[in-house]
Simulated scan of single mutants.
Amino acid sequence: MIYIGNHLSSSKGFEAMGKAALKLGANTFAFFTRNPRGGKAKEIDPADAERLRSLMEEHHFGKLVAHAPYTMNVCAAKSDIREFSWNILKDDMERMEYLPGNYYNFHPGAHVGQGAEEAIPVIADALNHAIKPDQSTVVLLETMAGKGSEVGRNFEELERIIELVDCKDKIGVCFDTCHTWDGGYDLVEDLGGVLRTFDQIIGLDRLKAVHLNDSMNVRDSHKDRHQKIGEGEIGAEALKRIVTHPLLAGRLFILETPNDDAGYAREIAMIKSWADESME
């Protein structure tokens, strides 16, 4: 069984997102914990969260992937932005327990001139400040394209963060295909080699979810421009090999392609057909 979904708006509540996912043919989804460009989070309705949990159980959903807001930069050079971001991370860890046992994905951050070597311990400190040993949420570091001063532009930088995190059982990775391709990894001609490299450096057991996106840019561009499945430089055949690769079996696949609902429904149906073909 493949778990495939897309990003949904959380503004109407948890149950509404679950119903919207079902309408698109999805059996998982991603959502922002708060306005992706803002800071204040909407108050959680525990009854609404319970209704979503019931719906997920009834329809055999996979785990969900919550996403931190883009304004969160836990390794920011400016202390006020860093404090603001640490508070968001801590608050989101507490809020995620209304939907226990799911994933929380975030961009590791941008060092803005400090250098990755200085930023990496700060990112780990933020995680150690926010993660509690008894929480049910697993935090996912996202693979990044390496634009500007992004941290996480290669597997080695992510591994160095993980090494400094105390609760290592609460940390994983979200593998973004567009970002990884734009970051220089050849997903088209050497997918097996990329996955072996990931396994050697980080460990495939930490790869919990995949952001399945095509890319507008050629490999190693460090630009981060998502494209619809099959309309970019990675291409449908390479993305199909990712979806059906045995080493990625059981992972969640989340679409972040530039689409409307009809487009997402088409992509979800197409990816499900790829998975069905691989089982024949």
Results as ranks from 00 to 15, higher is better:
D276I: 08
D220L: 05
M270C: 09
T197P: 00
K147S: 10
L204G: 15
Q227E: 15
C178K: 03
T244S: 14
M1D: 05
K147V: 10
N154I: 06
L158K: 03
L212H: 07
I123N: 04
I268T: 00
D199K: 08
A262Y: 02
A119N: 03
L127H: 06
A41L: 07
T143A: 13
E237P: 03
E267F: 04
N154A: 10
T143H: 03
R37H: 14
D45I: 06
V173T: 08
Y98K: 01
V188N: 08
R37M: 02
L187P: 01
L55F: 10
A209W: 00
A209T: 10
A145E: 06
R251N: 14
K78V: 09
M279Y: 05
A30W: 02
K23D: 05
K223D: 01
H59M: 08
H107E: 06
D190A: 14
T257M: 08
A236H: 07
G18I: 00
L239F: 09
E159I: 10
L99E: 01
L239I: 13
H60I: 01
A41S: 15
E15G: 00
H222R: 14
F106V: 13
H67M: 07
L140Q: 10
T28W: 02
L212S: 04
A262H: 07
E267N: 04
F84I: 11
F29R: 00
K170F: 03
T71K: 03
P258S: 14
A275T: 00
S136P: 06
L207A: 05
S11H: 00
A145I: 04
E237A: 14
V210F: 04
T177V: 08
K208A: 06
K132W: 10
D214Q: 03
S278E: 07
L248P: 11
K240M: 14
L55Q: 09
D134Q: 13
L24N: 03
T33R: 05
L255N: 02
V194T: 05
N259S: 14
E118D: 11
M72C: 04
D186R: 04
F61D: 02
N213D: 08
